[in-house]
Nucleic acid binder design. Structure first.
Lengths: 213, 213
DNA sequence: TTATTAAATAGACCGACCGTCTAATAAAAT
DNA sequence: ATTTTATTAGACGGTCGGTCTATTTAATAA
């Protein structure tokens, strides 16, 4: 009785896919989607492209995602989190002084864009630039993403400030915003110039400006 | 004879449109195209959109432009020149000190994005971000555009250096590159944040960093 | 073992939109 | 009236996102 109420008797018919398998397929779509949007943005990434990469039929797609817009939101959220975690790995690395942690991130980012032949950038930057052509519902998510990443950089800058590496009166929140503003421009420039130089140039300028020397 | 050689006899058939009318129509398409690409980029701007704005039929479009790609190149070139002229107006204004000229440009840009409800940005920045989805032939044009604009800013910074407003050893060419790198990121952020603040924030950071004070 | 049922998959189909191209029309000279 | 050339109208084939239906699969009930 009690157990019957908490574990309802299985009805006839094909059972739903095992949670694990369901998630596996869903994750495969997400991976393919992240790749596509990081390279081509939202508008130029088609559902068929993504399906082709993972050999998944259209019917299955709509089993996992209600629409392209919902899929896009999931991708934005996942990218923000994935990138935040990657950022944290660098910025929380206490074996390095704070500004060198930021440099470590920059180095990783630079080898990433190079590895992808300067065809990929930042998914959030891509969609930010497409803001006039994509669903308005994305905007707040993109904003929150930037805010999260900025807060991580701000934390790093605060530690740099505590260590006297930057001015005691530096507004770390504002500096972190400015870092990301310029950084997104640098990422875009890597595609135009086919070079990672904009990333380093921007980073060196930024740190030279904020450093106590 | 001589006049006949310089004004060839009209052949049979429908005469071409008067040069003036031809150019008028072509310019109308270009204007509509500039508006569209400044807001939505290349991929999301359709020929039909542009035609609708100017009430021009599709067949006429191909009379003026061989393809969407050729049209796009024309728009890129025109935008670069238009923007360069606008920049020069600000940066060559000898009634202001050099850095205030740059500020004047920033103020104009800020009121522009505001006037268009933060839906428009920089056509070149838009296409730069779309680089992985648009014809490769655009890339060098975009690069040349940035280089032109950067050279104008570099000239202004050199004058600031001569006047002792920035360090004597400042690399003005490099600083101008960095300015534009970050500027494009700021322009993108105006669309996400629905605010002109990123433009001013970036500009103030940049000038604070390079100024002798 | 067979029938029933429900989930998952396969992919056809639809309407809208896209860029390009060809046929139709217009405007001239012969 | 015919011929010729320029301009315009809109057809065409392809791609897109989304929907739908048929088929297959995997379970339980009879």
């Amino acid at each position: 009785m009690d157990t019957e109420k908490t574990t309802p008797k299985r009805r006839r018919g094909r059972p739903p896919k095992d949670k694990k398998d369901y998630n596996e397929t869903r994750e495969a779509l997400i991976r393919a989607g992240l790749e596509s949007l990081t390279e081509k943005g939202f508008v130029s990434s088609s559902i068929d492209d993504v399906l082709k990469k993972e050999k998944i039929p259209k019917g299955s797609y709509y089993h996992y995602f209600a629409s392209k817009e919902e899929f896009g939101k999931e991708l934005v959220d996942r990218y923000i989190d994935y990138f935040a975690n990657m950022l944290k790995k660098h910025l929380d690395d206490s074996s390095l002084p704070p500004l060198e942690r930021l440099e470590s991130f920059v180095n990783t980012a630079a080898s990433g864009v190079k590895r992808h032949n300067f065809k990929r950038g930042c998914l959030i930057g891509n969609l930010g630039q497409e803001m006039s052509s994509i669903p308005e519902s994305f905007r707040v998510r993109l904003q929150k993403g930037f805010e999260l990443w900025q807060s991580l950089v701000a934390g790093c800058l605060e530690e740099a400030r505590r260590e006297g590496m930057i001015c005691a009166d530096a507004d770390c929140t504002k500096l972190a915003e400015i870092f990301w503003t310029g950084w997104e421009g640098a990422v875009m420039r890597t595609k135009v110039d086919q070079s990672e130089a904009p990333l380093f140039d921007y980073f060196h300028f930024f740190t030279r400006c904020i450093s106590n020397k």
